[in-house]
Design a protein around this nucleic acid. Structure first.
Length: 451
RNA sequence: GUGAUUGUAGCUCAGUUGGUUAGAGCGCUAGAUUGUGGCUCUAGAGGCCGGGGGUUCGAAUCCCCUCUUUCACCCCA
């Protein structure tokens, strides 16, 4: 018999892993709520027409499509088999969600008359991509999105930065928050005389950390950017100094671009606001930060863990026209997404999961037989009412086996109630860590375990 | 989608130019110890060598196909 398995790129989560994942989700969720964001959920599947064309050609290929129920191929003509793209649309009307942003845009447009704007929501759900799995990349993974839509104020950006700051402070992960602005990038493309190549430029310079300056220049050449334009770009990418110094230098370069100057102004305002907050994580203006997604129009963010070499663990930005594709214009929004799976890896590597994240049963009552069970049931109930996680070993097995069970599950206390204990109305309790054993009353036990 | 890589016991892995009945450590089960875990000792169970096809007197080992694992690119969280 072949062993059962799960699909490529998916994962099972053990109890220990779930405890840790929930610690991350609970932390993130509590911070979202604290800043006034409310949860929504959307279905795992969307109409394929909602998803197609929103993520570029690459994205369309990575969509999981769902075969229509019933006889999906009924009525398909022989010649239709030759055009697989058209055939797919014939037999698949639904697809699994690819991210949380597009379903959110659909949600906002669909319920626009019921929503009070600015609309602040968060969403923590899995998404699916038919990508080839590799390090830190899965076909099913969770995103934790927080967005506010229907407000152009930069205070929203500040609030998101505060959320980022608080989340990573609570998780005790030192990070650097990188900030840039798409308008600045547009301005750079403009003075390079390559405004039409903005997407190519952003995709290329986004890789500078990974592949280095020379490789980026090579890629720009291949995309048809002129040597002269590349020469203009280089000093901008290599800007150094404080955020204010960078802005100062950049202002001189971009003075002829109205869009670029607007971006600089936004960055100035944002940094100014940030100084008034208690944000303590490092905030850094990084002109090489671009982010591939081309719906961003203003601020863009990315968060990297300081001590772990892993991709970004959080990212986002402002988009002015996300809902336009669904017919609702002039609805500016800004949001960020936390990558729970990568945060998990970072916490594991830094050994920063709190012990409580894996905490379990506090005490288990050994099962010695029918005579003693009713006493155990009463005691367990009393402990549970006091909020102590307690249980009874379900089978009347050898004590050795019951102790081994407690030991393997790292349950710290074993209670033994036999003939003698029942007669005296007391409990024998063994501490498995110290090996000490004592007899006490249920009241004493409850008080001891509560502390 | 492109290029590599992996698969042998529950887990981590050995396995000689192809040669009888495929091994180890850990884990598991039972006992030493019938009211006490960890340490120790003894015994035992557990494998269609990822799957399919081929070469051969003979295949875990060689060839082909397929699935799977991991990694890089593309893209992305």
């Amino acid at each position: 018999m072949t062993k059962p398995s799960i699909p490529k790129g998916t994962r099972d989560f053990s109890p220990v892993e779930m405890a840790r994942r929930n610690y991350i989700f609970d932390t993130i969720r509590s911070v979202f709520k604290l800043h006034g964001y409310a949860p929504i959920e959307t279905p795992a599947m969307e109409n394929l027409s909602t998803l197609l064309g929103k993520y570029g050609d690459e994205g369309d290929k990575l969509l999981f499509k769902i075969l229509n129920s019933g006889d999906a191929f009924a009525g398909i003509q022989a010649e239709q088999w030759n055009n697989s793209n058209a055939l797919t649309l014939q037999v698949c009307e639904k697809g699994l969600r690819y991210d949380l942003t597009v379903p959110f845009a659909r949600y906002v447009v669909q319920y626009q008359n019921e929503i009070t704007f600015p609309f602040k929501r968060y969403q923590i759900q899995p998404v699916w991509r038919a990508d080839r799995p590799q390090k830190g990349r899965y076909r099913e993974f969770y995103q934790c999105d927080v967005d506010v839509i229907g407000s152009r104020s930069l205070l929203n950006e500040v609030e998101l930065l505060q959320i980022i700051d608080t989340v990573f402070k609570k998780l005790t992960i030192p990070v650097t928050i990188k900030i840039n602005n798409r308008k600045v990038l547009s301005g750079i493309a403009e003075i390079m005389g390559a405004s039409d190549k903005l997407t190519d430029i952003t995709v290329a310079i986004d890789k500078i950390d990974k592949i280095g300056l020379d490789a980026v220049k090579q890629e720009l050449r291949e995309k048809g950017i002129t040597e002269q334009a590349i020469a203009q770009l280089q000093p901008i990418l290599l800007l150094s100094g404080t955020n204010e110094e960078k802005l100062e230098k950049l202002q001189n370069v971009l003075s002829s671009s109205a869009t670029g100057m607007l971006g600089i102004e936004e960055l100035r305002t944002l940094f100014g606001y940030c100084n008034a907050t208690g944000i303590t994580q490092k905030i850094e203006l990084d002109l090489s930060l671009a982010r591939g997604l081309n719906y961003y129009t203003g601020a863009i963010f990315e968060v990297k863990a300081d001590d772990v070499a892993i991709g970004s663990i959080c990212g986002g930005g402002r988009y002015d026209d996300l809902t336009g594709i669904f017919g609702l214009k002039n609805m500016s929004g800004v949001g960020v997404s936390f990558g729970a799976d990568r945060i998990y890896d970072v916490l594991l590597q830094l050994d920063k999961f709190p012990a409580a994240a894996t905490e379990n049963t506090k005490i288990i009552f050994a099962n010695l037989g029918e005579q003693e069970i009713s006493a155990c049931l009463q005691y367990v109930q009393q402990l549970r009412e006091a909020g102590i996680v307690a249980e009874i070993y379900p089978d009347t097995a050898k004590l050795k086996k019951q102790f081994e069970y407690a030991d393997k599950r790292s349950i710290p206390y074993v209670a033994i109630i036999g003939e003698e204990e029942v007669k005296q109305g007391i409990i024998s309790v063994k501490n498995l860590q110290t090996g000490e054993q004592q007899m006490c009353s249920i009241e004493t036990l409850r008080a001891q375990l509560s502390s």
